[in-house]
């Protein structure tokens, strides 16, 4: 219930935060909303020696359009602010809908999009969504900024491609302009629990057929995954292809086993939920 002691650094700018990270190395942890880190610290599963609080870095909040036609969401934007943001709702409503499944109301008020992605938990909802959207994060370090595509961000269990001295400053997602539909099928034991499996289907429809299908899967491995075989089987086909295509949803996944599901049951759920998500998205 009580975190171990730590040294507290309140960053007033991104540069200050990076400086603190450089100074303390892997003894330091960034604190965004705190809804991934603080629970671990309270159970003393994490005990960083230095906490670098990003709460005062106002530059990390808010949503804008980028020159290349995407949305840039400040890493410290809370889940609730993502859900409520007009640009997000207008151009990338799927992100708002998936974010509405994160945690509960109180968690969404504090938790941030950057924090959730940097935590890199394959069982949480946003990593699979970023992956399915072909989104990316902008990381800033001592040598400036770089863009890390979602496909490269999630490396292993709770491990991302971020360096110890990098700060996620932005999340970038495409504008889904055109006839897109989506559905996130989150399957969990109770409303506030993590997904046993989550399947996000995103479909661009064109002349009665599927022009572009994306499927992101939550909690089907150590990292979030795309159901690539399903996507390939659908692109260019009609919606009647969904049921067969969804049978391939578990291909290439590495479903974990736990009290809630054996790997076999997870694979089964992935197929069923992918079918349902895609049917709803295409409908």
């Amino acid at each position: 219930m009580i975190p171990a002691s730590f040294e507290y650094v309140r960053a007033n700018s991104i540069e200050e935060a990076i400086g603190a990270l450089q100074e303390h190395g892997d003894e330091a942890k960034l604190l965004a909303g705190g809804h991934s880190l603080l629970p671990l610290m309270k159970l003393r599963l994490a005990a960083p020696e230095v906490i670098v609080d990003l709460g005062r870095v106002d530059a990390l909040r808010g949503v804008c359009e980028t020159d290349d036609g995407r949305l840039a969401i400040g890493a410290m934007t809370s889940h609730q602010d993502v859900i409520d943001d007009d640009l997000v709702r207008q151009h990338c409503g799927v992100l708002a809908d998936v974010t509405a499944h994160v945690g509960d109301a109180q968690v969404r008020h504090r938790g941030t999009i950057g924090g959730a992605l940097a935590h890199g938990d394959a069982a949480s909802d946003l990593p699979a969504a970023l992956l399915a959207l072909d989104g990316s994060v902008i990381a800033q370090g001592p040598n400036g900024r770089r863009e890390i595509p979602a496909s490269e961000l999630f490396v292993d269990y709770l491990t991302t491609a971020l360096n110890d001295d990098e700060v996620v400053v932005e999340v970038r997602v495409p504008k889904l302009d055109g006839d897109w539909g989506w559905r996130y099928e989150k399957f969990s034991r109770v409303a506030q629990a993590w997904a046993i499996v989550g399947a996000l289907g995103i479909v661009k429809r064109s002349n009665g057929s599927i022009e572009d299908a994306r499927v992101g899967l939550t909690n089907m491995g150590t990292v979030p995954v795309r159901a690539a075989a399903v996507e390939q089987a659908l692109n260019g086909n009609g919606t009647d292809a969904i049921a067969d295509a969804a049978q391939q949803a578990a291909e290439g996944t590495d479903a974990p086993g736990d009290l809630n599901a054996t790997p076999e049951f997870r694979q089964h759920l992935a197929r069923v939920l992918t079918r349902r998500a895609l049917e709803a998205a295409a409908g």
Binding site: L43, R189, V190, A191, A193
Partner: peptide
Amino acid sequence: LSTGSLLDYYVPSAAD
């Protein structure tokens, strides 16, 4: 105890 906290021991909320 594998269900050692409210994270794994599922006490239902109003939504459940």
